[in-house]
Design a protein around this nucleic acid. Structure first.
Lengths: 197, 197, 197, 197
DNA sequence: AATGAATGAGTATTCATTCAT
DNA sequence: GATGAATGAATACTCATTCAT
């Protein structure tokens, strides 16, 4: 009866949804949530305004999905680092080098920071993001603990050091400043040096 | 009108202006610029909406003034640290302890971060803020260089280390997360440990 | 294609069209024209949105068809009453009893009332409906005139009395109020009593 | 301190509110609630769109206020009739003549009918309006009971007769049909004749 | 013919800014 | 100067209609 290919339709729907989130991530990271118009997201995604609403109930709904997928993407990233072959230094090096250069890393960092700190975000969202943020520190803490066992990394609470290191990376990522590279050629080894004995 | 009154009037104007900026700083830091209404600023400052416009031309004007006074306040703060009596460690300790706990520190950090990174901010503002940010790194770099001369602080480019340290502090300040203190009692010495040999 | 099939196709088309109008009648009567979405009509009719447009040019087109078929259905109803065997009282009784209880009576009454009175309806539609409404009063007027000739019904212009009686029925039908039956068990004889000498 | 006259301001506010409701009543009665734009109400009231929202939270809020004031206005009207000097016939005559010709009568009738019957109206509103409608029948029932005691009016439940009479008036009022007056010069005595013995 | 995804014009609502008092 | 009512441009969201499959 139906003249449409249901399976293919579903694939197209999933593809569209990813398309919208991808567009939203970059636009929102650059301008902030409230300054981003649905029309911006739609045109970046190459679709019409109305069609965005076929896939998401509201702008806030998009933001929520963005935050969730961002945190999941980060979790997979850091878990991947943890399970690499090699010394803990190698793992941390890989993490540092790749999160800095990864195309979505900056955008995810900016968006999650906004989600955690702005009172314009509903409190239950803020809290969920914060809880997950802390949970996402654990793989990094594990890498640090390994390094301490290997005698390479400074002593101290591994979770505390993880928080400090992640904060530093976030702080640096947020300094997307023109001209910053002229004063600092920040390479992973310079950043990791802070953790070393 | 006597010159006495004119002078007094001017003082009142300046006082009001500071009042408005103070209110704007806290409201904007919490909700972000676009989500903050002039009415919020006015009511926080305890004056009427219309009256705000007697002191500032527009919302953007308030933001610009905020950013400027914030950067100036930071500059004075860091210069003060640099000229303290004592070792470079003592100076950095004072800086770390006080900027973290200073009432306006958090708000200034949040606002300047937004001013630097959002495309919703006019480019000439972004650029001015960024340039001044780099300039404001110098007193910190000087303290670090002193510490290196004293043989206490790690080797490396002092401006680079300053950027890293400031980024870390900003990153930590932005983690105004409920529950974060249960996993990390961050004291100045733990943070400074990163810089030490 | 054989003429047999063409004929069959036409029947199917007519059937679908009636299906859509039937669905539209009930949805629109309940929510009003502007608050009714094409999607509501489609899903009530059990077909897809796109398919509705295979049978009607537009929402307004559906409404126009609805109004026409509603007025025709009413006309047939009242003509049927007029040509029943029996006294004029019997005819009026049958009319009163059955229009009140007839499944489409309420919906048709509501829709025609809207079509006649709302400025949101194009004027040429309003006028056509009104003209036909007046015309549709005539069979009722005839029944009343008969009753007057029989000496059972009050004196007075038969068309005027018809208008009054029909208005009363419409008014009552529009009082689809929960709880109304607890204060009034309205039976045809009570309503007809008004017309009697 | 305040440069505005508070008492005068309040009066102006009340005046504006009445202005908006008055405008809304006529526009909504003519076009229906969903087809009425806030811009229509605003321009009819002679103020700006934004200013409407200084006095009412939303379009639905306006509608609710309209319904309440409409029912109150009707109640006062019918109570006034009840307490007039004279026979019950005189009272009913006054009621019939004046509600028909009263400038707001038509609009109130149309709006209340919509409020009672459309599913587009939230159910708690529908129910409140219906309950009050039934309550508002009582003064009319009292007039009818008086008439029955005087031996002028037909026998029968007074509340039932009230419902029938009010429905008839509503039905007639809703027949705001061009050309209707050429077939029926409806005067109060013709309408009241229905109730007489 | 049937489907439902895609489009974009239309409307409710918000809020920076102005202005009469 | 101070106030807050008034304005209207801007934006989220809806829905009639079209169109590719």
């Amino acid at each position: 009866m139906s003249p449409r290919n249901i399976e293919k339709d579903q694939k197209l729907r999933d593809e569209r949804q990813r398309q919208i989130l991808e567009a939203a991530m970059h636009v929102i990271a650059r301008r902030g949530l409230p300054a981003t118009k649905i029309a911006d997201i739609a045109s970046t995604a190459g679709i019409s305004v109305g069609n965005v609403y076929k896939y998401f109930r509201s702008k806030d709904d998009i933001f929520k999905a963005l935050v969730e997928s961002g945190q999941q993407e980060y979790r997979e990233f850091v878990e991947h680092a943890l399970h690499l072959e090699g010394s803990s230094y190698d793992k941390l090096y890989w993490y540092t080098e790749n999160w800095l250069s990864y195309r979505n890393g900056w955008a995810i960092t900016v968006i999650l920071q906004y989600a955690r700190t702005s009172e314009a975000v509903p409190e239950h969202v803020t809290q969920a993001v914060s809880a997950r943020f802390i949970d996402n520190l654990r793989p990094m803490a594990e890498m640090i603990a390994e390094g301490q066992a290997e005698g390479v990394i400074k002593n101290g609470g591994s979770l505390e050091l993880a928080l400090i290191y992640v904060s530093m990376m976030e702080g640096l990522i947020l300094h997307n400043i023109p001209g910053i590279h002229e004063i600092a050629m920040l390479t992973p080894d310079k950043m990791l040096a802070l953790l070393l004995k």
